[in-house]
């Protein structure tokens, strides 16, 4: 299944900004993060289709997954 993965801030370094990726059915957010070698401790904000999700969330065809490190501002 096709999923769009977006990376932000320091996660882009050595990886990509946005990419359409093919994943097997049943892939979770954790699988994607592990596949991209994003350390679990650095994962901050995870969103699928503009909504926050947790690591164990299963992706479906056409999802857009956005991964950010822990960030702040204001």
């Amino acid at each position: 299944m096709k999923v769009t993965v977006k990376l932000f801030a320091s996660f882009r370094t050595g990886r990509f900004d946005i990419e359409a990726v093919d994943y097997p059915v049943g892939t979770t957010v954790a699988d994607v993060a592990d596949g991209l070698k994003l350390p679990r401790t650095e994962l901050g904000i995870m969103m699928i289709n503009n909504r926050h999700v947790k690591l164990e969330r299963v992706l479906v065809e056409g999802d857009t997954l956005a991964l950010f490190p822990l960030l702040g501002g204001g």
Partner: peptide, 12 residues
């Protein structure tokens, strides 16, 4: 800087 939030809020 704080402007890192542009992408976060837009995504949310």
């Amino acid at each position: 800087g704080t402007n890192v939030l542009t992408n976060v809020l837009n995504e949310a």
